[in-house]
Simulated scan of single mutants.
Amino acid sequence: MVHSGDIVTLAAGHYRLREQLAGSAYGVVWRADGGAAGEVAIKLVNREQMTRAEPTVQARWAECAAREIAFLSRLAPWDARHIVRLLDHGLHDGLPAMALELLDGDLAAHMAAQNATARRIGLAQSLAWLAQINAALAKVHQHGWRYLDLKPGNLLLDASTHTLKLADFGTNRSLLDAGAHTYTGTASWQAPEQFFPEGAGHLTDARTDYFALGAIFFYLVTDGATLRYSGACADAWRAHGRDGAAQLLAAWQVAVEQFECHGRQAVVQAMVEQAHDVARIPGREP
């Protein structure tokens, strides 16, 4: 486990960790001092989470980091307009690590700050940011990947230009691999095919990313709201984990049956009741 003050040595330099900025199941991001290079963001594999996983799946942590480095290292300099820049990479304690440009927080934090001061993101700014995100996704697809984790937390704000940059590419999946894959991403921002499995896994393609882009547009123009469908998926995931999709499908099937038997008013009531049941976490009152 790393601590503030530790030195991370990569291919092009040494970086002293200052403070942890963010963390997820797969990675942790630190503000670091790169000497003449200035401040950077150091992204490391979340070793603590990795060691808790079954030994048979621990390799996924290194694979996600290696996949992100491989994608970012192939980008041209002008691609940095809307995608976070990779500055350096190498190994730290035997696992892939990278130095990224340090930006000014993510879209989720920016939205929270706007709402706290009763300010809104205007339509013109929302459309401009949407175009920037779309350009970033196009670049991901051009390089043969689908992104699969578009959400406010992965969109970083460059305060100097007031633009957004896409970050965190560990969930990328090859567009050439059309087969079903394991679950990945964040439930509250996923297209149906990414949340609900089809046979042995999830069948996604580049279009899956554009569902999430639409959800981001809704988020921007509604002061941070999420789609009701997406909220239901998130609630089901929090309550039941990987079983949430099956629980939600069962609830919706009850609603359909109610509609067929009793009409619209009955289906509305059934959906409300079933949604409460799905979101109820065992041992905790809803």
Rank of each mutant, 00 (worst) to 15 (best):
D104F: 15
H141I: 13
D106F: 00
Q274D: 11
L102W: 12
A25H: 14
Q49V: 02
L220M: 02
Q194T: 09
S160R: 12
A266F: 00
Q58N: 15
A116Y: 14
L44H: 05
A250W: 01
A234C: 00
A255L: 13
K165C: 07
M271L: 15
E273S: 13
F218V: 04
A41C: 12
F211I: 08
R119M: 13
L102Y: 14
F218M: 03
A53T: 15
A12G: 08
W237R: 03
A116L: 15
A65C: 14
E39D: 09
T56D: 15
T161A: 13
L86E: 12
A36Q: 07
G185H: 12
R242E: 05
W237C: 03
A136L: 00
A53V: 07
A76P: 14
L72P: 00
I83S: 11
M98W: 03
G90Q: 08
D79H: 04
N46H: 11
H240C: 06
T184F: 06
R74C: 09
M111P: 06
A270K: 01
N115G: 02
T226Y: 07
P152C: 05
G38F: 14
D149C: 05
H14C: 15
A65F: 06
G5E: 10
E63A: 15
A53E: 10
F71W: 05
K43Y: 01
S4E: 10
L248F: 09
